[in-house]
Design a protein around this nucleic acid. Sequence first.
DNA 1: GTGGTCTAGACCACC
DNA 2: GTGGTCTAGACCACA
Lengths: 129, 129, 129, 129
Amino acid sequence: MLISIDVNSETPIYEQLKEQIIMGIASGALKPGEQLPSIRQLAEDLGVNLHTINKAYNQLKADGLLTVDRRKGAVVNFLAQKPTAQQKDELRRKLRPVLARAICFGLSEQEIEDLCVRTYNQIIGGNDE
Amino acid sequence: MLISIDVNSETPIYEQLKEQIIMGIASGALKPGEQLPSIRQLAEDLGVNLHTINKAYNQLKADGLLTVDRRKGAVVNFLAQKPTAQQKDELRRKLRPVLARAICFGLSEQEIEDLCVRTYNQIIGGNDE
Amino acid sequence: MLISIDVNSETPIYEQLKEQIIMGIASGALKPGEQLPSIRQLAEDLGVNLHTINKAYNQLKADGLLTVDRRKGAVVNFLAQKPTAQQKDELRRKLRPVLARAICFGLSEQEIEDLCVRTYNQIIGGNDE
Amino acid sequence: MLISIDVNSETPIYEQLKEQIIMGIASGALKPGEQLPSIRQLAEDLGVNLHTINKAYNQLKADGLLTVDRRKGAVVNFLAQKPTAQQKDELRRKLRPVLARAICFGLSEQEIEDLCVRTYNQIIGGNDE
DNA sequence: GTGGTCTAGACCACC
DNA sequence: GTGGTCTAGACCACA
């Protein structure tokens, strides 16, 4: 999978990294059991510091999406079958401001539903743009 | 409308402020043409710095949701009927990582659609929790 | 509360820090709502790097023992009334090897119970040694 | 006795090994005088490096729990009747942060005592979970 | 080889 | 003032 970073973006590099890896897992581009590049390798490839990569990997580990194997580095976890209540709350909390903004921009309920479905298919299909 | 701030949250206060005002507009609690509290007053009510309120108001003005008038202060704009292409892109960009994360947590397409619809109704209904 | 670090110890500095703060909270030396030294201040006082302090504070925040206030820095949380099931599991997992070792060293059940009670009282009493 | 290793755990493999052997001795699954698998064989069984097994065995020897004989390999020692003062200190030092954490999580003295007793019985009974 | 820890020093966002 | 992010470079533990 190809990862690209915009160092000038206002969102932190480690957040961009997390998002891209999550996108990769969601789209199936990263398969469960698959090995991610080592911290140092990825840091070099992207031209960023190894601590930045480390932070992203560790947070994804805390999210339960990666496990870190002392020998093989970071490995993609098998997907959970169901989210915990806490995870669901977190999702709703993140979803709320986005949808509220959509409403303010004049989207109807139907259009918002369409937007969600189309975005979902974008992710699954893997065609990112 | 009641605005409450959590100073311990990791999301900046001005972001919380923006989110709450957007939620207010989306839910109809804040009506077009309605006047928001003055910067000075809101700052005092919430016990935060003037700059913080000012930043939130200005960004909402840039979003086209408020009009800042020197005499009347901040006023809620009439909602656009349709979002610009740029706004739609922005929505999709914000929506994508949330949905991708939902997929990683094991939600099916149907469950994600449900989540969106239910969250939408929460906002419209105004019952935040 | 006085915090002291042994930079030559094999346990990481940030772990020592976490342990001492936890001891402080448990003993009542650190009261709920009390403000901890700022990252930079404590780093200077202890003669260690600010990132080391930052890591300890963040992990305690993740444990729910501290909250980080953008204005006042780190603040001691009010104690939970009951641990979550996960926290209880974690405690048992940490307790098991210690007790097993005690058994191997020849302590009877009664002696182990005494050891626990006496250690508990040490913590509560605050007399650390 | 069955030994199983989790290579993804954050606790080092040699530590896991030590813990499991200690658990085995404490529970009586490993009897004094009993011979442990040879380093070479155990390394192969678990699929880990020779050094890793060696390190665990050597540290247990330093703890006085094993005797390493050039001909018979590692043998379980007879349990001490009483711990040395040093061993007791070590136990208290390891116990303290666990109990302090329990207090922070809201456990009362009685609940902590229960936790210790129940964990003790788990070990003795050998039913690990 | 891997990740974990620590240091030193910089800049930025927030308040 | 506070914490958050990032860099550059070092050493260690683990396997």
